[in-house]
Design a protein around this nucleic acid. Structure first.
Lengths: 208, 208
DNA sequence: CACCCAATGTGATAAATGTTACTGTAGCTA
DNA sequence: TAGCTACAGTAACATTTATCACATTGGGTG
């Protein structure tokens, strides 16, 4: 397990890794599990060591607006932010694969900020990258029409899955972009005509 | 000046305030000045002691999408985040009133994180509130149509200015919501018919 | 006052997106 | 194989938003 920690968080100092090892709680989830709900209290920061997590913003009407992915070696910025005051979560986290993660209690999270430079830098780095990611999301909704947003979504999906064959239904895309399946179908057809994708059942192949 | 610091940042410890006093650079801007541009390098964190700042996200086409306000006693989260790695700004900051602020160099910002608990808490609090504010903005664009977004905008404007008489033109609102003046005029008319606002030249009066 | 100009109002029309309704099709299973 | 179901395609229409064109209004200024 130390190996997994070291491999996923290479910037952590040896002492920090030992501290994590002796204090942290390991937790695992199955693909599809909801790890965190909007409104839930947060007392731990979560470090992802295996699998993939999708972060959503929930609308009142039950919409699930996709924000970003978490990969092994990353942490949930929202859990860090909320954990510092035991606030409720503003987002929903869902496992897209079987997930293993390490829970760091609030008290330790704060203590380490003062004691471990590598932890401090990791936390700040996490804040920064997630903030930037959210700003990009704002861009995409504020300035771009649905066709561009769809391309943006597919690109991120491909990056996260590490493949150009996206196993995803039109309905799922529609839900995560907060639009309707018909709209996505139409736009995908147009993209196919432009030679950007090749459409199959339950699969979208990104060309070029 | 120490009084102004203490009044605006009441959580800061006495030692921290002294440190800020002896190290910081004071800077002032006129209403309308652009304080920070997208793409500009950031080496300082900024604490606002007087005036008001609007934070925008700039689109490639020149759009200026309004994100949130900064008031005295607050700091620019983006400047904190970027400053830690001398990154470029992802946002634009514009003074809406005459502004006075304190610049904290990157090196101090980091040093104080380890030394001053009140600074650490302030930084974390700033991250958290700004992240939440941006998430709310995502909500408003992702889940709501223009009429609701307009109401959301006006409410925030009223809160920030501390008045129900908003001195703002339809064109300005349109720009900051990335839509067109006609749309805003029409929606405002509807709001007036519903008894939510009273429209005057260069002024929108929020009723109830 | 006469004029100008920015701000606002409004209709017509286009484009994008949302909604409804229906069809087809692949894959699974009884 | 028949039937079921999730997924996908598509037409028709409604609604929202964008764009264009032009009228009106009110305040400031010569």
């Amino acid at each position: 397990m130390q190996d997994s920690l070291k491999a996923n968080f290479p910037t952590f100092s040896t002492e920090l890794i030992q501290e994590i090892e002796s204090n942290a709680i390991h937790q695992s989830y199955k693909a599809g599990d909801v790890i965190m709900r909007t409104g839930q209290y947060i007392n731990n920061t979560m470090l992802l060591t295996k699998g993939q997590i999708k972060i959503y913003r929930e609308g009142e009407n039950g919409g699930e607006f996709f924000m970003y992915y978490l990969q092994p070696g990353q942490a949930c910025a929202v859990s860090m932010i909320c954990a510092t005051k035991s606030q409720t979560s503003q987002i929903m986290a869902k496992a897209t694969e079987d997930v293993e993660l390490i829970m760091i209690p609030l008290t330790l999270m704060e203590k380490w900020m003062m004691q471990h430079r590598s932890w401090y830098e990791f936390v700040i780095f996490t804040y920064r990258t997630r903030f930037e990611e959210v700003l990009e999301v704002v861009d995409s909704i504020a300035f771009r029409a649905m066709d561009e947003r769809l391309e943006f979504y597919l690109k991120r999906y491909a990056e996260a899955s590490g493949s150009k064959d996206l196993k995803v239904s039109h309905q799922e895309i529609a839900t995560e972009l907060n639009t309707s399946r018909e709209v996505i179908s139409r736009l995908l057809k147009k993209m196919e005509q432009r030679g950007l994708v090749s459409l199959h059942r339950n699969q979208i192949e990104l060309l070029q």
